[in-house]
Design a protein around this nucleic acid. Structure first.
Lengths: 229, 229
DNA sequence: CCAAAAGTGTTCACAATACACCCATGC
DNA sequence: GCATGGGTGTATTGTGAACACTTTTGG
């Protein structure tokens, strides 16, 4: 009895990107207005179909780059979604990815072309298909990740204040943190460099800027380092 | 400009199952001898293709059940693998699942039919395609999961001794644990029921048997309970 | 009576938490 | 000189880790 690959069912394979950003105030999600039927004009995650000669990672990066102009962004595969009728037109399996980007970095012209818009995470509209499910899974994963790995540097500008970093953790984790305890833990991680410069926009006194020491961080991660926020 | 689903590339979608078992001694992996070309006769994870009217979860359960005769097994989606040439015959995306089963439970006749065999995790042969990569990802996930959720009850017989449970944790985590500390932590979780019965096979004195209180466990999990081993 | 595994508590070190006041500056 | 956000330390509690002796009983 020989096996024949041809008798098996094929499917379209898509990737959808949950794109998170942060604007000093709120965790945000980048959505597009869907440009074609079905569900044309509704809010949707940015997605695209996997091409013959691409891996899923490559496809997800392509999709993200089409919308934001960014490459080399932090991205992680999230989960495969496969309800039979999730796309009413064709059987489509979608593999969701989530990305963390610095909200200031993207190319606004591209956003316009896709009628894309940032939404506060607490104020996301209804999404097409199973995209809301994807979003909640991404949030869950981001929260867990945040409490075991220093994350969020991807979401901040290169230089940032402690206040901004703390605010970011607060919006991701959905709880307020104590200023002193937060700084203690962050300093223990030993992956920040305190600069001489101050940010003078937020207060009269000004607050010191920090940079993320990526090299030191990657050394630690490869040693299996995690922490507990 | 309208969009046409038909111009997109389709692919075969497969599921592959990393099936873990435990035999009081070692963590084990269930492999089959591949029955068809390419790589016929080589060791492989049990897999199968996604059918038109199935979700990935359903397909993974079907595949597992074909090999073991078991349903209602603990199973979790792991990751989507998509290297372009991972299957040399046809473009195939594979979504890996891992399963935890009680090694005593399976149907030996079915194993025979697939020329399947259990291997100690420390002694796994070369696997076809990217299956070794799947396995290492599964092990990593199992280890992480084990240190935050009570796991492993799926891998044990219904009634088990503390010694067995500890041994299981030890082989999953790959380190020895202190008997007293282990019991303390497990008892804190409060999901075990100590039975009046003893297992007399392991020592003269005999050791008490325990059962897992699934209901209490599920209540806890839905309250967001995790622990640290 | 002895071999072999089961069972059981305490101490110590470190990490998490709670908490409040002074500082620097622009206006 | 005062209002605003920035910066800093300590005391308490809880949790993880290390550690050794007694019990049971079949042979």
């Amino acid at each position: 009895m020989d096996f024949n690959y041809n008798q098996e069912d094929k499917a379209l394979v898509a990737v959808d990107c949950i794109i998170f950003g942060f604007d000093e105030e709120d965790l945000k999600l980048l959505l597009i207005k869907r440009a074609f039927e079905p569900e044309k004009g509704k809010w949707s995650l940015m997605g695209g179909f996997l091409k013959k000669n691409e891996t899923l990672d490559v496809a997800a990066n392509r999709v993200l780059s089409n919308l934001t102009g960014l490459n080399d962004v932090y991205m992680e595969q999230l989960y495969g979604f496969s309800k039979v009728d999730r796309d009413p037109v064709e059987r489509t399996i979608s593999v969701a990815y989530y990305a963390l980007i610095n909200i200031k970095d993207h190319n606004p012209k591209l956003l316009d072309e896709h009628s894309a818009q940032w939404f506060s995470i607490s104020d996301v509209p209804d999404l097409i298909f199973d995209h809301s499910e994807m979003l909640s899974k991404a949030l869950e994963r981001l929260r867990r990740r945040t409490s075991t790995n220093p994350v969020g540097f991807e979401l901040l500008p290169k230089k940032f204040t402690m206040r901004q970093l703390q605010k970011l953790y607060e919006v991701i984790l959905g709880e307020e943190l104590d200023k002193r305890n937060f700084q203690k833990k962050i300093k223990q991680m030993n992956v920040l460099v305190k600069l001489k410069e101050k940010d003078m926009t937020s207060s009269r006194k000004g607050s010191f800027l920090y940079e993320f020491d990526k090299k030191r961080y990657e050394e630690k991660v490869s040693d299996g380092f995690t922490f507990k926020m």
